[in-house]
């Protein structure tokens, strides 16, 4: 685990309850009341989606809702910001996927 459980000024984290959630079919544990982005990073997961067209990987950038880079699918709802969304018990989270660029294909086909 990649958590900062003991901090010289902020103190120790002791009594946090954990809950299970799924990310791309794998079950992970989150602390209650933490964001999807924090829970995934605590589990060593940085990649949250791929660019819709190029397929290149993306993760958090700003972590406070400004940049929209961390959008994932939550319980079927697409484009949810992982950095602002609190994990709930048995939440099903899926990474953002590559999508067909229909317009581009039409242009290519002439």
């Amino acid at each position: 685990m990649n958590r900062i459980l003991d901090h010289p000024i902020l103190g120790k984290i002791t009594d946090r309850k954990t809950i299970p959630f799924q990310y791309d079919g794998t079950t992970y544990e989150a602390y209650k009341h933490e964001t999807i982005a924090a829970a995934l990073l605590a589990n060593g997961v940085r990649k949250l989606r791929v660019h819709e067209e190029s397929g290149t990987p993306r993760g958090i950038y700003c972590n406070i809702g400004h940049c929209m880079e961390c959008r994932v699918t939550v319980n079927g709802q697409a484009n949810v910001r992982a950095c602002l969304t609190v994990v709930e018990n048995d939440m099903v989270v899926e990474s953002g996927k590559q999508l067909p660029n229909i317009v581009k294909r039409m242009v290519e086909q002439g």
Partner: peptide, 10 residues
């Protein structure tokens, strides 16, 4: 844009 790059505030 690689995962692992973030703003300092993040």
């Amino acid at each position: 844009t690689l995962p692992g790059v973030m703003s300092i505030g993040a």
